[in-house]
Computed example of a mutant assay.
Amino acid sequence: MRRYETIFILRPDSGDPQIKEVIKRYEGIIAAGAGEMIETEEWGSRELAYKIKGERRGFYVRLDYVSPGPVMNEVERNLRISD
């Protein structure tokens, strides 16, 4: 198993419960695929380098985990299809 780091950005207007729900969903995907979470960091709301869909700010989250390769692929696939 290898160690991976995934950083994703959520809408800044998402409420705290919704942010926690999204983080738990990705932690669940990792756990379901025999992965192990090392650390989850919420970096908070920060200014983006450029506008994305009209937004100037985003809520950054960093996941640090150990898992087989297919689990990382599944996390990335879910990130691509979610808004």
Rank of each mutant, 00 (worst) to 15 (best):
L10R: 03
L79K: 00
L10C: 08
Y50C: 10
I19Q: 01
I52K: 00
V66N: 01
S45A: 10
E27M: 14
S82W: 13
L63W: 03
R3G: 08
Y50F: 15
A31N: 10
G54W: 12
P17C: 06
Q18E: 06
D64Y: 09
R80H: 01
E27K: 06
E39A: 07
G58R: 10
D83P: 07
E21R: 05
R80C: 03
G44V: 14
R11C: 03
G69R: 09
I19C: 06
A32G: 08
G44A: 12
S14F: 11
A34E: 10
Y60H: 02
V75P: 10
N73Y: 06
R25I: 09
T40G: 14
M1T: 05
R62Y: 04
Y60L: 14
E47G: 07
V22T: 01
G69P: 12
G35E: 11
F8T: 05
E55Y: 08
I52Q: 00
R80I: 10
R25E: 01
R62Q: 00
N73S: 09
E74R: 04
G28Y: 10
S82G: 12
D64P: 03
Y50A: 10
P17A: 06
E76H: 02
F8H: 00
G35R: 11
D83R: 05
R46M: 13
I7W: 03
V61H: 04
I30V: 13
Y65S: 08
S82H: 11
A31R: 12
R80Q: 02
I29A: 00
Q18I: 14
S67W: 14
P17Q: 03
I19M: 07
I19K: 03
E76K: 03
S82A: 15
D64Q: 03
Y60P: 08
E21W: 08
M1C: 07
F8D: 02
E47N: 07
D83T: 04
S14D: 02
N78W: 15
F59C: 06
E74Q: 06
E42F: 13
M72T: 04
Y50G: 04
I9D: 00
